[in-house]
Design a protein around this nucleic acid. Structure first.
Lengths: 206, 206, 206, 206
DNA sequence: AATGAATGAGAGTTCATTCAT
DNA sequence: AATGAATGAACTCTCATTCAT
């Protein structure tokens, strides 16, 4: 009797997103989801067959949103630098905005092949989007590059989780750093010999 | 009888490592741990006060081992390139050898402040080790560099988890790639202008 | 459906009263309570948060009933003798009717401050009721008198517990005896000198 | 290899008395008893077959001590008044000295017929001692008198348990009160008509 | 469609007792 | 005689799921 997909369907997903995200799958009770959604416990089961399926649905919605926004951002970029920047910014800001919900990805149920398969598929799609950008730059090994880049960003994301005072500006700065590192390497092109200088120092010592 | 630390203590840790690692904290039953350790359920509680404490002990042992091995490997390296290679190799191989036990880190109990604190400390120690290497190279922002490098490796690790056919040789190749990317950047020093070439291409299209 | 307070709530209290009373707190299993109440184990916890809280509720209901009945009886009495009789009769008959449930008071969980506090409060209320009667008679030390009287009755109650053949008529007889003793003392007013006669006898023997 | 009955036998009984008395039967762990007795857990079972049997032994020793002391006190008395006083003093002081150990009698295991039988026997022996005193005074119903007297004392004992500030002098005062009440009744011989005065007042009101 | 009382399998944990040393 | 590591039955309580209303 509702809106586009049914008001309650959405209310349950919202409530579940909030709770799975902040408490994790196992600590979240179906009764809490129902309460937060403002409906009765039994009603949840009219919309989702089980707790695991609800978790799947929440995850799916969140991942799709993530990929959709990324696609929109990339469409608006023209240079490689812009694109890398957009990817980094999206990745970090997305999690910055959701810093209370990180457990959605950390505390999922095991042994659910369907969920594992979906997560794999999501990772691949994300990777494809990033890889396409790498390919456009003509770099070798675009796949590994894409994975590495995402990895850098994911790690910086840890700070968002663990450091209470981390600001949105900090997140931006990190995004730029990641893009720069990616393009120039750690040492910048001008002093790459440092790699061997260090080497020689040690040899002299020996 | 009994070894240095007690044969059973070790047997329980081993069994718990196996189960927590492959099934996760919540799906692992204390009775299973006991059974796999070849002892009675009650005996587990003679060595570990609770399931959470057992999990902590397993985590601690694994993390300490990880850091110890890394330290040993770094001692044996002289150049920056060697060290980066050692870090990458260790990170990936460590998880390659433990690919069945990734859930030790993914499915931990929430809301356990002691565990959270320990994990943060571990991350910091790992980061310090890597950062020291970065500092020796004279690079600016060694902290961000260290985090980025670890992030790259962590991501490559995902392949180990998700792709069944991933071989040890593949892991080695990835380790070298990560070290190379880190030093030279994605595009290599020789054709950095690609970043802007891409830009111009798009402008011409427009 | 469901009665005034909920049919099941009452059924659980009844079952728990029966079991706590006859087996004691520690020997009573929540599963037994559920079985006797004709419901599932989990259902008990919908009505009572824990075993201890259920015990408290059973105790409270029984104590309130006891005090209420006493109050009703005393309202109907006019002379002191009648009132003492009523108290004695109530005390003994109450336990006579509940002789299977004496363990409600003997086998309660320790270290539960709330329960201890409640029992103290109950004792005080009972004592107040009896003390008011004593005060009306103008006797000195009404509090000590009240406690002593209750003590007498409590002890006679022991016979109810321990002697299988103890009849309701026996209980009545004891009640009258207690009231008489209370008013006249052990020896009756006519031969109080017996206290000293005994003394002299012994002196003569010496 | 020890003294009269074995040093350890006594040490266990002492430890068990302390713990059963202060914590109750169910809350006392055999390991605690062993620890307090300064021996190993298994050793307790060399002296006592089970926890219940240990409890029995503790109870038996305490009861025998109680009765023995009473007998000694009564031997030294000549008048009835002295004897009643001695009984009251013994009863209250005994528990005053043991106020930490009241749970020995309140939290015993159920369903142990041997223990129940022993307690009954103890009660009877105590009763016999007191009854003999009553009989010497030539009073009718010496048994009921004895029980009533013990009852009074038992109740006054409650104050010792529940009122923190209760002093030894208070205990003495109560003992004298109980003896006096017993001999003279609540109202004393001089104004027994109060019983009926109250009656008449109410009749006039009507 | 919506409810929420009822279910019951299943978990972690305790502790009296045993027995190889 | 003494030990204490090991046992495992038995307990309380939780919570995803069902179904009569």
């Amino acid at each position: 009797m509702g809106g586009t997909v049914s008001h309650k369907h959405t209310a349950i997903l919202d409530a579940a997103y909030e709770l799975f995200g902040s408490e994790g799958f196992y600590e979240t009770k179906m009764s809490e989801v129902a309460e937060r959604a403002g409906i009765a416990k039994g009603t949840v089961y009219l919309y989702f067959k089980s707790k695991e399926e609800l978790f799947m649905a929440v995850t799916r919605r969140d991942c799709e949103d993530f990929l959709q926004r990324l696609e929109n951002l990339l469409q608006a970029c023209s240079t490689l630098a812009d694109k890398l920047s957009a990817i980094a910014g999206h990745h970090l800001l997305y999690y910055y905005e959701r810093k209370q919900h990180t457990k959605l990805f950390f505390r999922a149920p095991n042994n659910n092949p369907e969920l594992m398969a979906y997560m794999t598929r999501f990772m691949e799609e994300y990777m494809q989007s990033v890889m396409k950008v790498m390919q456009e730059s003509g770099a070798a090994e675009p796949e590994l590059l894409a994975e590495s880049y995402i990895g850098m960003l994911d790690r910086l994301k840890m700070d968002i989780m663990l450091r209470p005072g981390f600001s949105e500006a900090d997140a931006h700065k990190r995004a730029e750093f990641a893009a720069g590192l990616f393009i120039h390497g750690a040492l910048g092109s001008q002093n790459e010999q440092a790699v061997h200088t260090l080497h020689e120092d040690h040899q002299e010592e020996a």
